[in-house]
């Protein structure tokens, strides 16, 4: 079954007969059954998720942190890679919305007997679930799964490709701290080559009008990254100097990042974020990290726990973003629905 989608209407300002200016607020409508990446979203759709997340953050501040919105729906967390934050965050988000949650990991499931991703997805659909949240070590896994099933698929990280909810929560945190990302200088520092977080952030931030700089040792900068509209540098001080915010990425040793530089200590000395280095930056620079942190590799412990760090707020905002995403994909307006 092929789904067709209605177009989102644009922002309108109309003048009433009496001359009053009536602003019809932009009403982007969510029409997608899946969230696969920020590359495929418009500026308005990203804005819609962020707006909704604000409302869901308010839900998390209530005395009773739960709403009945997804009652009777089932969300499956299908994780082919280890994860703490993302999985628990998605699980909590679904539970705060009153959905039922099933966690499925590679170990101890039929995946180990060789069941393919598509077969697993179709079986989950046959079990009458509503959303599959998938993390996979192959780029494009979520997109492939979404074509194979009619239920919603949310990408929780696919290989080196995208990790949309992480980027959304990064942007949400930036919006909270700095008002609006438009026109801001944001540097993404660290293992760009292996990072799906970097790619999602680049897509999202450039769409929203931020100036993005990526900084890493030459071997960790993928060829052609500047085509995504970012500045590239290998000079850490240059990347920090003008930045309103820095997003420091984890060195992904499990993906052979260690081969790109001589030693962890040397990387820390040349690229690690220390208080010493931050002295040359703007005083209220926002320091982010998607976690888990390698303390003493990409960032010193003092910075991670310092006044500029918003790392734990990012984690809190992650629940709100994931609630918004689960809400929108399950209530997508489809033309023929």
């Amino acid at each position: 079954m092929k789904l067709s989608y209605v177009k989102s209407p644009e922002e309108k300002t109309k003048i009433s007969p009496k001359g009053n200016k009536v602003v019809t607020k932009k009403t982007a409508i969510w029409t997608k059954k899946d969230l696969l990446g920020l590359e495929y979203l418009s500026k308005e759709e990203i804005g819609l998720i962020l707006d909704n997340a604000k409302s869901f953050k308010e839900v998390l501040a209530r005395p009773l942190r739960k709403v009945p919105t997804l009652r009777g729906k089932t969300v499956v967390n299908l994780f082919y890679e280890p994860s703490t934050r993302t999985r628990i965050s998605f699980e909590l988000a679904a539970k705060r919305l009153s959905a039922d949650v099933i966690n499925m990991v590679k170990e101890g499931s039929s995946i180990q007997k060789g069941e393919t991703l598509i077969d697993t997805g179709r079986n989950l659909e046959a079990l009458k679930t509503d959303v599959i949240v998938v993390r996979h070590n192959c780029s494009g896994a979520a997109a492939m799964l979404s074509r194979a099933v009619n239920i919603s698929v949310v990408n929780a990280g696919d290989g080196w490709h995208e990790h949309p909810t992480q980027a959304l929560l990064d942007i949400f945190t930036l919006n909270e701290k700095l008002g609006n990302v438009k026109g801001l200088n944001i540097s993404i520092i660290g293992d760009i080559a292996h990072s799906r977080v970097a790619r999602s952030n680049i897509w999202g931030l450039t769409k929203l009008g931020a100036n993005v700089t990526v900084c890493a040792p030459g071997k960790l900068i993928p060829a052609g990254i500047e085509k995504l509209g970012v500045k590239v540098t290998s000079n850490i001080d240059e990347a920090i100097k003008k930045a309103d915010a820095i997003n420091v990425l984890r060195m992904q040793f499990e993906r052979d990042a260690a081969g790109a530089f001589p030693s962890r200590i040397e990387y820390f000395k040349t690229f690690g974020i220390t208080e010493e280095r931050l002295k040359k930056a703007k005083k209220d620079i926002v320091v982010m990290h998607p976690g888990p942190i390698n303390r003493g590799v990409e960032m010193s412990a003092e910075v991670a726990d310092g006044a500029n760090s918003v790392i734990l707020e990012q984690v809190t905002n992650g629940i709100a973003i994931r609630m918004a995403v689960l809400y929108l994909v399950t209530h997508a307006k489809r033309e023929n629905a």
């Binding site: 009403t27 409508i29 409302s55 308010e58 839900v59 209530r62 009945p68 809400y327």
Partner: peptide
């Protein structure tokens, strides 16, 4: 109050409601 999240007709409403904050 914004009642959107409590509606019993969320999947049936013709127009997608705009979610706003409850204060």
């Amino acid at each position: 109050l914004d009642i959107t999240l409590y509606r019993d007709d969320l999947t049936e409403v013709a127009e997608q409601p705009i979610l706003k904050e409850t204060k």
